[in-house]
């Protein structure tokens, strides 16, 4: 049952977006989430949609992966679309069937909000599809550095993130191994009543936790004997490089914001 389980959605590639520095992509997504809210009429939404399509083309990500990312929230998207359609009763009456009435304004708002959700999901998906989790962590660490002044343990957080990312595949293998071992002994957590499943979870978790504590201790010893002392003066194995592409992306985003500001009603 673990074969389908893959951590992260990163797809390696060498497109324009893949080559960007994780810092510029993080700043881009962060600002984009705010800028999207400037759109409030057909023209501005069209601009945002076009901008997103260009980003998708530049990332050379197959549409299939993006659509796939929509599945878990499809229900919410449809639900909010319907809420708009049925509850906004402004503008001309477009369609009526018994007690169901659809007004122009409701349809317009429903379409706008759906475009916004779609665009947001696509843009955040492009970040995780084109950037490996460890690069995102490196980028976050650098971007959060100024908050060290407010006692935010940035280095420690980044260290924990990289340890987690390093261990997740190992932990998946381990979970799979224990699950199979327990299945071989006749215990199965994917069938039976709720009570039986909960009972079957216990012999999975205890060995998993015990071996995790063992791994943690081994790693602590290994780090200590190699003289790990914390963030001060540490050098990095993975270097980040900011080049003209990254500056271009941020400038383009600034232009988009100005354009939306100018076109919005």
């Amino acid at each position: 049952m673990m074969e389908k389980m893959i951590f992260g959605r990163y797809i390696p590639g060498d497109s324009f977006v893949h080559k960007l520095d994780p810092r510029s992509k993080l700043v881009f997504v962060f600002l984009f989430i705010a800028i999207v809210f400037l759109a409030n009429n057909a023209v501005t939404y069209a601009v945002i949609l076009a901008f997103t399509l260009v980003t998708i083309l530049l990332s050379r990500i197959r549409l299939y992966f993006l659509i796939n990312g929509l599945k878990p929230i499809l229900f919410l998207l449809i639900f909010t679309f319907l809420l708009h359609i049925f509850f906004t009763k402004e503008g001309d009456l477009l369609w009526k069937w018994q007690f169901i009435e659809v007004y122009e304004e409701g349809l317009r708002q429903g379409i706008f909000i759906s475009i916004r959700f779609l665009v947001l999901v696509f843009v955040t998906s492009i970040l995780t599809l084109t950037t490996s989790p460890i690069s995102i962590t490196d980028g976050m660490e650098v971007l959060l550095n100024p908050f060290k002044r407010f006692k935010l343990p940035v280095h420690e957080l980044a260290l924990m993130m990289s340890i987690s990312l390093r261990f997740i595949p190992t932990l998946m293998d381990e979970t799979d191994k224990i699950l199979k071992a327990q299945m071989a002994r006749g215990s199965d957590i994917s069938t039976g009543s709720i009570k039986e499943r909960i009972k079957a979870v216990v012999p999975l978790l205890i060995p998993l936790f015990v071996s995790a504590f063992k791994r943690a201790e081994d790693l602590a010893v290994a780090m200590e004997v190699r003289g790990y002392r914390g963030g001060e003066g540490r050098t990095r194995y993975r270097q980040l490089k900011w080049d003209w592409r990254d500056s271009l992306v941020i400038v383009t985003l600034g232009i988009l914001a100005l354009l939306l500001w100018w076109l919005r009603s």
Partner: peptide
């Protein structure tokens, strides 16, 4: 730090 990281992974 290490236990938190590994258990977050779990």
């Amino acid at each position: 730090l290490i236990e938190v990281a590994i258990f977050a992974g779990i």
